[in-house]
Design a protein around this nucleic acid. Structure first.
Length: 309
RNA sequence: GGUGCCAUAGCUCAGUUGGUAGAGCAACGGACUGAAAAUCCGUGUGUCCCUAGUUCGAUUCUUGGUGGCACCA
């Protein structure tokens, strides 16, 4: 690709996806440096302040190397959803693309990545009282009763939804009750075209290697002081932001449910399971090109082949 | 060296009065639209150590090995 006086490059979002512990952060920074791009995080937990070790936020040096966004800029008490992320990230990208040709999006939250690349349907806000009430009803009346109500209010979604999943049933029901309209009437399933090019890269490796890396990283987190970090967050353990691998297991240890060795074992196991769920999500996306994290040159070449015209 | 016990899924083990086997944990596959590191659904993945017998048929009984453990020398 020979440089021309007037290069024409569409604004390009380079997405780096992959399971936890696969080396996304390092690769993202390598790409950001190569393309002269900033990094926005697509990680639902690294946005929170105070969760540095457990969510494996980039180090000080890494943060200093390239501009980062959505890292540690919320409090754990803040409500921050995938919809908030979509909205704020889009606004930010519009600004960044006036200055940069490339932006690198790094993170493992599949829903956040999809929200950013494809858009979410417009759904109404739900009153927090209603949400709380439904949570209580699930435990008091049982999921089946609520599913029965959903069948009345939104038969279409009732047929499609996983009725054994409280999160799904409650979510649908709260939208129905809030608006008086079926939840499915808001779901278009359509994709929003973004005003920038998107190149998706996935990082992975043999399962055994990935699991070794995860185990080692958990040990490293403990050495860096994860226990103290979790202890400081213990008062917030019921918040959504703290429903996070690494913290939950230590909270249970603090509660005396098991010893520290068992907690570490569970953090490793649950990280592996999380990695597996991430891979399931990402494998569904045919636009992701997969690489081993060490193939930096190949990744860059692949992006350059597709990223300019 | 001798005697005894053991050998079954990745691990710890159960079981088959002879008809090729099942629990827990681990693992594997999947779903996913405002909590998504969340939430939920599904799946035994096996030369029953090897060998030669007996038998219609051996993982199961018998012979001889191999490996492990224990005790005695």
């Amino acid at each position: 690709m020979k440089p021309t006086a007037s290069k024409i490059i569409d604004p390009t979002l380079i997405v780096v996806a992959g399971p936890t512990g696969s080396g996304k952060t390092d690769l993202g920074i390598a790409l950001a440096r190569h393309f002269g791009a900033p990094v926005i995080s697509t990680d639902s937990r690294q946005v929170y302040h105070g969760m540095k070790i457990g969510s494996a936020q980039p180090s000080e040096e890494q943060l200093a190397a390239v501009p980062h966004y959505f890292i540690a800029d919320r409090e754990v008490t803040d409500r921050f959803t995938c919809a908030d992320f979509e909205q704020e990230a889009l606004a930010l990208l519009e600004k960044l693309f006036s200055e940069y040709d490339y932006v690198v999006a790094v993170g493992g939250s599949g829903l956040y990545i999809d929200a950013l690349c494809n858009g979410l349907d417009e759904l109404p806000d739900v009153d927090s009282k209603l949400r709380k009430e439904l949570a209580e009803r699930v435990s008091r009346e049982g999921l089946e009763t609520l599913a029965g109500q959903l069948r009345e209010l939104d038969p279409d979604y009732y047929e499609a939804v996983d009725r054994q999943n409280p999160a799904r049933v409650v979510r649908a029901l709260e939208v129905c009750l809030q608006t008086g309209k079926p939840f499915s009437s808001f779901r278009t399933g359509g994709r929003t075209q973004r005003p920038f090019r998107i190149i998706k890269t996935g990082v992975t490796m043999a399962r055994a290697e990935l699991y070794r890396r995860i185990d080692r990283r958990v040990d490293a987190m403990m050495e860096q002081g994860l226990e103290a970090e979790a202890h400081a967050l213990y008062p917030f353990r019921r918040l959504p932001s703290l429903q996070t691998v690494g913290y939950r297991e230590l909270f249970a240890y603090f509660d005396g449910e098991y010893n520290l060795a068992r907690a570490i074992e569970l953090i490793k196991r649950n990280s592996r399971r999380y990695a597996k769920r991430q891979l399931t999500w990402f494998h569904r996306d045919p636009n992701i090109r997969w690489f081993h994290p060490q193939e930096t040159a190949a990744i860059i070449a692949s992006i350059e082949r597709n990223g300019s015209r």
